[in-house]
């Protein structure tokens, strides 16, 4: 009973705030994505629904929700429906441990980093199950590609996180951020620069976004794993994918850019740590997602594998040693 009360009165409101916040952010992220890519294509992007097209996301949501969910013949209905739910649930669950500002975190657990890694990789089960349950060869191919890709990049991502773990000496995300206190130069991005790049690129690959979107690959396998999905089920996949993008961006900001800390030092208002610094840093990486998508063509499948296994993994292993040595000898402004 006490647990229930604790859950409802203390946490429900935070959970609602986070979920609603993420859903709204996703809605405007789709708008933002279309605008950014349109601008890079020298077009205008959506500008019809509402002033400057600002109501476009709601029009899209209404459209998707009013459409019929079509079940393919001979598809396994249960798996077919559970797949988008898995994708979405894991994407939302990962938000539980993200510290928005000092102390502003739903679950301040010590294994936060591992938890996040687990949640973001569990999401791939949604993709695989969707591909399997759709009873379609394109969907199955997409799922297979996605599985192989995630297995490859998970390792590089994990090693990059080991680097962060070594640097911070903690798995708790809040602790990791606190280790970066003290302005721009104290952020882990400098000693961990290669790991930072690899983490972000692996994150792009893990969320199946361009240029690593072979799981969808419109030009090759139509839409990959979600080719058979329509209406609300498709909307859930969409929501999950974008929620994952936000979480990867948020984690990159937390682990490498000092989360809620200001890049400036001193006593003025601009040097105060606040949630806005965190949100701002997250938006930079969200922008980078779209920037990359507008700039790069899709990787060929074998090149993705090559990049993951032959480039990223060796670099991360080497750099973990470098970080360890730096830490042992108390190098720089980070560990003295």
């Amino acid at each position: 009973m006490e647990l229930l009360e604790f859950l409802i009165f203390d946490n429900l409101i935070y959970i609602l705030a986070i979920v609603l916040g993420v859903i709204l952010t996703v809605a405007y992220l789709t708008y933002f994505e279309r605008k950014v890519i349109a601008f890079m294509h020298v077009r205008m992007g959506p500008n019809r629904v509402g002033p400057r097209g600002l109501l476009q996301p709601f029009a899209d949501v209404l459209k998707l929700l009013t459409k019929e969910i079509i079940f393919p013949k001979n598809a396994n209905k249960f798996l077919f429906l559970i797949a988008p739910i898995i994708t979405l649930a894991t994407a939302f669950a990962a938000w539980a441990v993200v510290p928005f500002a000092d102390g502003m975190v739903l679950a301040d657990i010590n294994a936060g980093l591992v938890y996040v890694l687990a949640m973001t990789s569990l999401g791939v089960y949604g993709v695989i199950i969707a591909g399997w349950a759709s009873n379609s060869k394109y969907a199955l191919l997409g799922a297979l590609r996605s599985a192989a890709q995630i297995v490859s990049y998970e390792i590089a991502m994990g090693f990059a996180l080991v680097g962060v773990l070594v640097a911070a000496g903690s798995l708790n995300l809040s602790e990791i951020v606190r280790g970066q206190e003290g302005g721009l130069v104290h952020w882990y991005i400098w000693p961990l620069l290669p790991l930072f790049l690899i983490y972000y690129i692996s994150g792009v690959a893990e969320t199946n976004r361009a240029p690593f979107d072979v799981a969808e690959g419109e030009s090759e396998i139509v839409a990959g794993f979600h080719v058979e999905y329509s209406g609300a089920a498709f909307a859930l996949f969409f929501l999950g994918e974008y929620a994952n993008m936000i979480i990867i961006s948020a984690l990159t900001a937390l682990m490498f850019l000092g989360g809620w800390y200001s890049p400036f030092t001193g006593d003025s208002w601009i040097a105060q740590p606040s949630i806005f610094w965190f949100l701002g840093k997250t938006s930079i990486f969200l922008y980078a997602y779209f920037w990359l998508r507008a700039s790069l063509p899709r990787y060929r499948y074998d090149q993705i594998m090559r990049l993951g296994w032959k480039v990223f993994i060796p670099i991360t292993i080497v750099w973990i040693f470098v970080v360890a040595v730096m830490k042992v000898y108390h190098v720089g402004p980070w560990w003295n």
């Binding site: 294509h41 077009r43 700039s295």
Partner: peptide, 19 residues
């Protein structure tokens, strides 16, 4: 190379739109 490509798209971001 990727930096060059990104800079190019960024340049077009600020161009006048043809729409």
């Amino acid at each position: 190379e990727i930096r060059k490509g990104l800079m190019l798209t960024q340049k077009y971001f600020f161009k006048r739109k043809f729409t």
